[in-house]
Amino acid sequence: MFKRLMMVALLVIAPLSAATAADQTNPYKLMDEAAQKTFDRLKNEQPQIRANPDYLRTIVDQELLPYVQVKYAGALVLGQYYKSATPAQREAYFAAFREYLKQAYGQALAMYHGQTYQIAPEQPLGDKTIVPIRVTIIDPNGRPPVRLDFQWRKNSQTGNWQAYDMIAEGVSMITTKQNEWGTLLRTKGIDGLTAQLKSISQQKITLEEKK
């Protein structure tokens, strides 16, 4: 169930391209415009997507990853294993993690069937560096609404905000991946996880038929 919630949630996290980005210092504006741009692209490019579902990787690479804190999220997933990894191991892992996100997020976007969304009203940021933004996803086919909290983090150097995690039903996506990959990290280390991520990233994206 959580895996499905995570995939549905990713439908609204794909941010804007650099040329049309919203105010990078306001995570609420980023979330709002990102959702609108993403849904528009999914709707307008269905012919290309249906002809070649792996085209979704391109959308992810162009529109999402430049505005997601990939390395920060990847380091959180590694936890204690990050500090013990060599620079070469980290570089290989982050490259594999990025390719994994292209496949995983692309597969999530393949679930698009006309969903709509509501974003919580903007709250004062103050001096906060981590801000959760509640998004409610509404399914046109009558499924119950899904309420999610996207975690946005302020870059201490640039002042810009980027998304790095999502919490559904009190469970963090980062925590879920830590639990899912924990045994592999304990037995085969970061190299074993890197190899698995490379394998997963090679899987073809498949479209979910409308139910």
Rank of each mutant, 00 (worst) to 15 (best):
A85F: 06
L207Y: 01
E45M: 03
Y67M: 14
D32L: 07
P53F: 00
P47E: 14
T136K: 12
Q89G: 13
A18M: 09
G170T: 07
R143M: 15
Y67Q: 02
Y82G: 10
T136H: 04
P140F: 04
Q162R: 02
Y55D: 09
Y164K: 12
K83D: 07
Q36N: 10
V8G: 05
E45P: 05
N160G: 08
I130V: 06
P132I: 09
E45N: 00
P144W: 13
Y55H: 02
V171L: 05
L10K: 09
G114N: 05
S17W: 01
P144N: 13
L207H: 01
W152F: 10
R4V: 05
V135M: 08
R57Y: 15
V131D: 05
Q115E: 05
T25E: 00
F97W: 01
A34D: 13
Y67E: 02
I59Y: 00
Q107K: 09
D149T: 09
L101K: 06
K83L: 05
I119E: 11
S17A: 02
A85V: 12
I130L: 10
E169C: 02
R186F: 11
L185G: 13
K188N: 13
T86H: 08
G142H: 14
S199D: 01
F150Y: 06
I174R: 10
L76A: 14
L16P: 10
N155T: 12
K83P: 02
Q157V: 07
M111H: 08
I133F: 11
L207I: 00
V135R: 08
Q48R: 06
L65S: 12
T38P: 04
G192V: 12
K83A: 01
T183G: 10
G74N: 13
D32S: 09
L5E: 01
K210I: 10
K204C: 15
Y55N: 01
P15D: 02
G126P: 11
A51I: 08
G114I: 14
T129W: 05
P121E: 07
D127W: 00
S84I: 04
R134K: 00
K210T: 05
E91D: 02
Y117I: 12
D165A: 10
G189D: 05
D61Y: 01
I205F: 14
L42W: 00
L148M: 07
L184Q: 12
G142P: 08
W152Q: 08
S201W: 14
N160F: 07
L101Q: 00
T116F: 06
A18D: 12
A96E: 05
K177L: 13
A34M: 10
R98N: 11
N179M: 12
N52M: 05
R90D: 06
S84Q: 10
N155C: 11
Q89M: 14
F39L: 04
E63I: 05
A104V: 06
I137P: 00
L184A: 08
N26T: 08
A9M: 05
P140V: 11
Q62C: 08
T25L: 10
N155K: 12
A92V: 12
Q203N: 15
K43P: 13
T116R: 09
L78K: 07
D127M: 13
K210F: 15
P124G: 11
A19R: 14
A168D: 14
G114K: 00
P47H: 03
M31A: 02
P124S: 07
P47K: 09
N155W: 09
P27A: 11
K71E: 06
M7L: 02
A95T: 11
T158L: 10
M7Q: 03
M173C: 13
M31K: 13
A18R: 03
Y81K: 02
A108D: 11
D127R: 10
R41G: 05
D23A: 03
E33S: 08
E209R: 12
P15I: 01
N26D: 03
M166P: 05
R4S: 07
Q103Y: 02
Q89V: 04
A120E: 05
L10C: 14
V77S: 06
A21D: 15
A88S: 06
A108F: 08
T187C: 07
W152L: 09
E169H: 14
W161G: 04
S17F: 15
A35E: 05
Y72R: 01
R134L: 09
F94T: 00
S172Y: 02
L109I: 15
T116W: 08
E33K: 03
Y112K: 15
Y112V: 12
R57H: 03
E169G: 07
W161D: 05
M31V: 02
I130G: 12
E63Q: 05
I133P: 07
Y28L: 05
S84E: 07
M1C: 00
